[in-house]
Amino acid sequence: MTSSAHQKILSPEEIAVRAGEQQTFLHLPEPGVFAERALRLRALAEGHAMRDFLGFVAELADAQHRALSKNVAVPLPTPEQIEAAARSGRPLLPAPTWQRAPVWRESLRALLLDLARHLPAGPAKATALHLAEAPDEHLETQAGRLLSGVMLGLDLAAAPLVAAALQLHFVRLVQQTAAAHAGAALPPFGRIDDPTLCPCCGSRPVASVERLGAEGARYLACGLCATQWHYVRIKCTHCQSTKGISLQSLVASDDAGATTTGAVVQAECCSECGHYLKLMHPARDNGVEPLADDLATLTLDLLVSGEGDGGGLERHGVNLLLLFGEPEEAPPPGRGH
């Protein structure tokens, strides 16, 4: 049994001062990012209404992990590009406009064939094999729509698969760029003018997390490259207001009707701009993984977006593995060169 619960938050300025400059600003994606995601997805899938979908995404994350372990080289930004990004206050690898090398499509096809080998016969396997044969133009069009937020014409069945390959590509870009410029006088990644966007690829966060070992400091988690960056608590991740912030959660109750506390995932809501982003608490469950826990708490999205005047709040974050749009009129043709 669930019910909604609101928690009003006070004194954001005091928390901001405390969080401040003492925190590590960036946490780049670790080599095991996809393996940890797969593990969490399987744990969350047990007894879940979305068990089949979460299990599928777990298989997809496993395939991403196997691909990432192969250390495929990707073309990296030049020192001149790093300097230009730093001067302009913009992310070094802006996802919608960064020129994707052909290696991302090669990796996509390899990822799909590997995934298909681990899937039972059915629609998911058929979609993976079909997409592996799609022409380059179709793959680039779908990737462009995903990264620019254009839902019209998005191939809904294939979108999670294309997104998985883009996640793999941008994690590689971030990891290899950081390694190539380790110790450089001008680091490749740092603060940008818009603190609500990923400093590495400019994407919106999938969720925010109070990191363990960081004294409760809040970090935004990129849904594309898996980078986490520090962002002051009790501050809207859309309009950056510190007014009208509240937390909402699904509160479970026991058989006697007593309310249990300590929700692992909450929605941080802003009445100033009408947006929200999920906030996750690893201290309450140290298995939390932003993208996985976001997928598993879709009920919270439905609750928050369905309440209030004007149809409720609008989600600020984006999860590339769970998108909705207008489907294409026909499936893509087979691969041709």
Rank of each mutant, 00 (worst) to 15 (best):
A126D: 14
L131K: 11
Y276K: 10
A101S: 15
R335W: 00
R66M: 04
S107L: 07
G89N: 11
L247P: 07
T196Y: 01
R172Y: 01
L279G: 08
H169F: 06
P102F: 00
L131M: 15
V103C: 07
A182N: 14
K243E: 14
G223L: 03
A45G: 05
A63I: 04
Q64V: 02
D285A: 12
E14R: 14
G287W: 08
E80T: 08
R172Q: 15
L68I: 06
G122Q: 07
D293S: 04
L322V: 13
P195N: 08
S253E: 11
V150L: 04
M151W: 06
I82M: 05
D255H: 10
E83G: 09
V171E: 06
P102I: 02
V17P: 02
A263V: 07
A16K: 12
V304D: 05
M1C: 09
P199V: 03
N319F: 00
L295I: 12
A116I: 08
P29Q: 05
R100E: 09
A95G: 09
R42A: 01
N71H: 11
V206N: 05
A252S: 06
A132C: 08
V265C: 08
I234H: 11
V17E: 15
R51F: 00
G144A: 05
T196W: 01
A84S: 14
R66E: 15
L323D: 15
A95S: 11
D309C: 00
A263Q: 15
R284T: 04
E80S: 10
E80D: 13
R37Q: 12
E13R: 07
A158M: 07
V74A: 06
L154M: 13
A159F: 04
Q266D: 12
L321Y: 13
H281C: 02
T227R: 00
H281K: 10
L112I: 15
V209S: 06
A163H: 10
A101N: 14
H118E: 11
D294Q: 10
G334A: 07
V318N: 10
F25H: 15
Q142Y: 01
E137G: 13
P160N: 06
S11I: 02
L10P: 00
P282C: 03
L154C: 09
G274I: 13
S305L: 02
R51Y: 00
G213L: 06
S4I: 01
L291F: 03
K235G: 05
A121Y: 00
